[in-house]
Design a protein around this nucleic acid. Sequence first.
DNA 1: TGACGTCAAGATCCG
DNA 2: CGGATCTTGACGTCA
Length: 417
Amino acid sequence: MAIGYACLTIGVPGTELSRCTLKNASEVRLRELIIHNLTALEAMIDYNIKNNLMFFRISSDIIPFGSHPVNQLAWWKDYEDILYSIGRKIRESQMRVSMHPGQYTVLNSFDENVIENAVKDLLYHDRLLDSLGMDSKSKLVLHIGGVYGDKKKAGKEFVNNFKKLPNSIKNRLILENDDKNYTTQEVLEIAEQTKSPVVFDNLHNTLNPSLKSLDEMEWMIECGKTWRTEDGKQKIHCSQQGKGATPGSHSNTIWMNPFLEFYANVPAEADIMLEVKDKNLSAVKCRNTACYNANGMELEKEWAKYKYYVLSRSAALYSEIRQLLKDKKSPLAKEFYEKVETAMILSEDKGAEVNAAEHVWGYISKDSSTAEKNRFQKLISGYKNGDNSIVPVKKHLLKCAAIRKIDYLIESYYFYL
DNA sequence: TGACGTCAAGATCCG
DNA sequence: CGGATCTTGACGTCA
């Protein structure tokens, strides 16, 4: 059982991905981007190892235009060594990685060109995993695709096109229920014909329920039966509906208590991929509360990253959590994260924001230049009287912290939440 | 024709 | 001119 996150790492310098538009995709630019993104990927892998996050989805954007004719580079050869050394870290740590071509990779289209592009895109993803030296337990998640007015027929088209794929892709593909078209039940029927494992997605299953009425646990068991030894552990997607957002959009964080209820029904062996905006933050939180009760030392590490964020929401909560962590013998991971989540749902409090900003500024002010001082004062008073939001204040503080290489501040979630 | 989703690039605006 | 903020891009389907 591992809990993972997708594509991006928050609050870790050096993990930012870059890209370009089609018209700027020169060979030189593409090479720069590939080097940059592989370096970022390695930083994400390092972070995962250091933080014992052993399940991870690699972003499709690592190789820009990876399946587009504008990119004619033999990147898998030119960057073989970097790819291999990243892959070695993944294997030696026994991390499981996967990829997920997006909603625009449609294998069952009635348009020949779209199918052709989908196959190219699958080849790109497969090749990246191969280049890292991953085996077929490193999966490619795919949706069935469009309906085109006749779902049965479109499902058959998917199976037909699947059969034409190279074996290495067939062995990697796993099929996921989606939020609008193909239900868990329908995906299971298609997967039976392609002999593919099925990924259960809880939010999609809620938004687009099957005809047959099974509960979440029963569907997860049904999907579990499609996973063979050579596929590795069953994979499950977990996300929560963003409050006040359009149906299907992901929440800012995985709320702990609903997650724990969901987790109780997840088959013991399954790996859970979280789809959530705060990425690694939720993965750590869910791991620390669901898989085991994190000890005081681990919570102190988390607190170091959350503290200025919490302070920026509420000084009272800040004090409460500090008090909570003083008693390190009793189990308190859930209480800790419950309070952090309380901070997240508070509405903006200008007094608290100013207090936190000034607190952070305290680490910088001692050796700050006049220009830095003036800018901080200007932005803070601008925030107080409504000329600007807190965002530029935080940006300025982060910049000052980065210049001084104050890791303790740079890694604070205060700047990223 | 635009919404959908993603998130950095690119463009524009502002002092 | 630098920095903040707003808009575009690239993909395919569906209303």
